[in-house]
Amino acid sequence: MRAIITVVGRDMVGILARVAGECAKINANVIEVNQSVLQDMFAMIMLIDISKITCKLGDFGEAMDAIGQEMGLKIHVMHEDLFNSMHRV
């Protein structure tokens, strides 16, 4: 089972570190990261393995949302199945 984390917002030091740190806390393995900075806008899509996480994905999503608000970013955590079902026949 995998989930996708998206982060969008103004660039600053430590975004990737913070998000990756939170993933480590719940034992989620980062599989792939795709990030870019356009002018001063930061955009990142991170694929994580959630098969061995230590909390519910919903709780993690809410925690990340709160961190996003604290850092002035928009962070979404969504189950990969949603994207697969919508975009793959």
Partner: peptide, 8 residues
């Protein structure tokens, strides 16, 4: 629960 997990 589904709402939170899938973000929909």
């Amino acid at each position: 629960e589904i709402e939170r997990e899938y973000g929909i």
